[in-house]
Simulated assay, not measured.
Amino acid sequence: MKGLRFARHGGPEVLGWDEVPVPEPGTGELLIEVRAFAVNWADLLERAGRYPGAPEPPYVMGHDLTGVVVARGPGAEGPPIGTRVFGVISKGGAAAEFVTAPVTQVYPAPATLSDAQAAGAAGPYLTADAAILTMGRLRKGEDVLIHAAAGAYGSACLQLCRAYGAGRIIATAGSDAKAERIRQWGADVAVNYTTRDFAEVVREVTGGRGVPLLLESVGGEVLDRSLDCLSPGGRLVSVGASSGRGSQRLRLHTLFELGVSVSGFTLGTWLAHNPELVRPSVERVLQQFENGGAAPVVARVFPAAEVAAAHEFLAARRSVGRTVVTVAEAL
């Protein structure tokens, strides 16, 4: 079969579809024929050699996918053979014709979602749900600030915060066009962070108090400035650093001085070691997909032969929603 790999770290030009063995499902695993996979910021950082804990190349990339179950390993229950599934595979390998996955990391794909939507749904929406409710403890009517709301994770946060009864939703994006899109998706206040100081906007909107909940995935200066946006007792939940940079400001005494809490997690770690933490999010998100409370936004779908262009598209921050690659058409 073909699998997407790179032999050395670098730009999109290092990517290639290599011939690799079809994996055998182990105990508690399913073999899935992949229809489509999503491109994440983590994929870009892995390829560039900037993702902590990533294995040394070459290895088959990809985590978020949709496909069809074609075989079961010993003791594997869950979706039967022939079921269309979607999910996030913590060990990777989804950018291939076939991949094995623990039964705890894939779920029957809702009929309401296309393959492209399903491929990009699990990671952003399960992460968003856990950030909002499990870690963020959103209460109905509370104001929320969402960064990078035009992206896959941000748009999922925006939809789910609205569905879960948030108060005013302040959301940031990197252009006027993106700001208009997130306003259409339900943001009460949309901020183009390239032309306005989002911290000043938050203070204006909240009368200087700040927001009780802040959902952050950018890192760097955005994370540093976000600490000025929290109300006393506020909660900041960080799930990534698409900027590739950490904080210069966040220290233990920062929490004491501001009286706030900061938490973070990665969905992959939870899925690999504590899948029971994810199950409530799976149930809530599937319900939202079924009742129309949420619908994954797909920015663009690329054929497998154009996977390098998909990486470039996401890296250029041109994606409004999810960037997806289909597998079957070109391999």
Rank of each mutant, 00 (worst) to 15 (best):
G141V: 09
G141H: 10
A48C: 04
P124Q: 07
Y107C: 02
L230T: 03
I169G: 06
Y125W: 08
A119D: 05
I169H: 09
S114I: 07
W185N: 01
A316E: 02
R139D: 02
A304L: 14
A310M: 12
A310G: 03
L215Q: 11
G87Y: 04
G73R: 09
E19W: 06
V297N: 04
P25Q: 14
P25H: 13
V191I: 15
R183N: 01
V325C: 08
P296T: 13
E142Y: 02
H63Q: 10
V282T: 05
Y125R: 05
Y153M: 15
T254F: 03
D228G: 09
L213C: 07
V320D: 09
G62K: 08
V68C: 04
G234F: 07
L44Y: 01
R47T: 12
R196K: 14
G82V: 11
W270Y: 15
Y153K: 07
T266E: 11
P23K: 13
C229S: 08
T194D: 02
R317L: 08
P80T: 06
L45F: 09
A187Y: 08
V34K: 02
R245S: 12
R137D: 06
A305T: 02
V68E: 14
M135W: 14
L214M: 09
G210I: 05
A148R: 09
S238T: 15
Q287K: 15
P58I: 07
E24L: 12
F86I: 00
I169Q: 08
A199D: 08
Q159V: 06
L145M: 12
G268H: 05
L45Q: 10
E13M: 01
A295I: 07
L30H: 10
T326R: 15
Q288F: 14
L145Y: 09
T269Q: 08
A111D: 12
R209I: 07
E312R: 15
A330T: 12
A121S: 11
A42E: 00
A179C: 15
A152R: 09
V324W: 11
Q248N: 15
Q105R: 03
D43A: 03
M61P: 05
V324L: 12
T266A: 14
V144Q: 08
L267P: 08
V205G: 07
V39E: 12
V325P: 02
V34Y: 05
S263L: 09
V20A: 05
L277T: 11
T172S: 04
E13A: 11
G26K: 13
F6Y: 11
Y153H: 13
V106I: 14
Q159W: 08
E180K: 14
E257M: 15
V324N: 11
R245N: 12
L236P: 05
M61W: 11
G165N: 08
V320Y: 00
V307P: 00
E204F: 02
A304F: 03
L255R: 01
V298C: 03
G240H: 06
C229G: 06
A316S: 07
A130I: 13
P275I: 15
R225L: 14
A7I: 03
L213Y: 10
R5H: 13
V297D: 05
E13F: 06
V222F: 09
G174E: 02
G321V: 11
A36W: 04
G233D: 02
V103Y: 04
L44H: 03
